[in-house]
Design a protein around this nucleic acid. Structure first.
Lengths: 342, 342
DNA sequence: CTGTTAGCGCCTTCAG
DNA sequence: CTGAAGGCGCTAACAG
């Protein structure tokens, strides 16, 4: 049995479709008797309005599109969570699509969102903005998050990754570190590039030689970097700090150092970037730059809502990351020797 | 400037809308000259088809609705990730809605999905199934995940929480634990209830006295439970294991014990449930029951796709959690004393 | 208060 | 190969 339509209800209740529509949308100009009859019939038929049709005729969907690079890892799930909490507080549904770093698919996705959402939130640090924005319908409200090359003057939220990376280097230097190695994010990623830039600038300011290891934001890259550094830890040029471009890589490195029995931060300090929830739970807790991931997502929804309501917003809203120093060291953790059981 | 419509393109290209439609959808029966002209005009006008209208006339959306209890915590983001990866591999978009444990809103959400998605995936362990399913349009394809009271014979994936909890108790007992305390999930949650049941059954089988602390699946509940147990740790009835109904609570407890300087698992063993990604990264690494969260999400998409394609599927597919024993102890971690800096 | 009518933007027979 | 016309399901004037 197919779905009942508004026409079925109208016929059964012996009224016009207009009246059914009025009842269902809570308009007041309907005689109580008619209202009740319509409601009864609708319930009996198991009628559920076809939201798609409704959207078409209202030219309004109450949904927003969200394009994220990937849903893997805590960074993006935190963003999604921030967006979701604000969206659901406003009764908006979310049409999610991850771009998987594939420009063609990203564009295709944007196109299939047209007419299904009232606006979009786009986070695409790894996509060529030229291509992307060319296919962004100008009349589609959009809020960008960390999109390099926002040429159309779109509303945007942009984390100051350069300043963040500089701040972290300053912190490491202030605690006595000198041989600070940076583990970078993926090549084509504008955020990763900015963090490298900040790192280099701050190192130069202190007359320190930069050293950059390639990475990709994944845990395994941290593991690999740690393995490389492990070989040098007893040498004359031993690094005394590893500053990873994101938390997951920092954690990968930390796990590897731990497995090798290297004291962190005793022998080598480790710092991350993002402050994902995990950073606080790992031990030793991770010193990192907090970007307020979920808050950015929520803020994007707020601005998008205003845009959809007809507002104008061409601002690039800067977000400055905050240094989070976590001082947990082994000594405060392991106050008691393990009882070996079995 | 508003969006161009198919009619604008037709007018500018001096052809009928039918021809434009054919060109845009790659039909072959169009003269090359016409095809090119239409494509040129469409590009010039920045025309993007209105997906909503397309869906209406095709009665097909290529989107699936996803209703999760909440996007907070790794459990649900993992589920979402599994769903997302499988969905995007199939070119499906996701319409996300979290129910926030509010039955009325959940029903409302389900209704607004009608006509906007081809099918839905529902995970609602905390909702009254009577109410929920009554409002689930029978003709809407759906796959349920861990929904108690699946009265309509809907396709479902169900984790065997009872067996999982039993297995964990068996494991703890086999490693010599006797005073095993269970930290439960929220009251109205069917998964939490099943885990309690499994715990009690296994305890009874060994003639052990069950003890259940109230919880809610959040980290803080774990903290609170640990504080309660801390007071008893030196007493004659000191518990020797805490089995939390999910990983986050287990982690909360572990953090609290660590802060108090209590050796884990030396003084007290801690076990969780779910095997969220975090469980492996925490230290000591968490022993837990793996339910294959992302895999369940992916599998749900596969089954839903078949259902949408017209298949029949009334099966309840069982998933048995797998015991993951992680043996990391402090001694293997802290092989080196911290160098105190500063 | 209620019904009729005209779309929303697109796709798809059905003729030509 | 192409155009005209009807319809997807619903809402919103516009008359009664």
């Amino acid at each position: 049995m197919a779905h009942a339509t508004i026409r079925d209800v109208a016929r059964e209740a012996d009224v016009s479709v207009a009246s059914v529509s009025r009842v269902l949308n809570g308009h007041s100009n309907v005689r109580p008797a008619v209202r009740e009859r319509v409601q009864a019939v609708a319930a009996a038929l198991g009628y559920v309005p076809h939201a798609g049709a409704r959207n078409l005729s209202l030219a309004r969907t109450n949904a927003i599109g969200v394009m994220l690079p990937d849903l893997h890892g805590e960074f993006f799930s935190e963003t999604a969570r921030g967006i979701d909490s604000e969206a659901s507080a406003r009764g908006l549904q979310l049409l999610l699509s991850n771009a998987h770093a594939n420009p063609a698919r990203a564009i295709e996705t944007l196109r299939t969102m047209r007419g299904r959402v009232d606006g979009v939130i786009i986070m695409a640090p790894d996509l060529d903005p030229e291509q992307l924005f060319e296919h962004l319908p100008p009349s589609l409200p959009a809020v960008l998050i960390n999109c390099c090359g926002n040429v159309q003057g779109r509303a945007e939220l942009r984390v100051d990754n350069v300043a963040g990376a500089e701040a972290m280097v300053e912190h490491l230097v202030s605690t006595g570190r000198r041989r600070i190695v940076h583990l970078a994010g993926p090549d084509g990623n504008s955020e990763a590039q900015a963090r490298v830039a900040g790192y280099c600038a701050a190192m130069a300011r202190h007359g320190l030689a930069p050293r950059i290891l390639p990475g990709d934001f994944f845990e395994e890259a941290g593991t690999a970097a740690a393995e490389e550094l492990l070989r040098e830890l007893d040498g004359p040029e031993a690094p005394d700090a590893l500053f990873a471009a994101n938390d997951m890589m920092a954690i990968g490195a930390m796990m590897r150092f731990r497995r090798a029995g290297v004291a962190v931060p005793g022998r080598i300090a480790i710092a991350g970037f993002d402050d994902v929830p995990l950073a606080r739970l790992i031990s030793p807790a991770l010193t990192t730059m907090r970007v307020g991931i979920a808050g950015i997502g929520a803020r994007a929804v707020v601005r998008l809502t205003a845009l959809i309501a007809g507002g104008h917003d061409h601002a690039v809203e800067p977000r400055t990351p905050e240094l989070i120093v976590r001082e947990t060291t082994w000594s405060t953790i392991n106050t008691e020797q393990p009882a070996s059981r079995e």
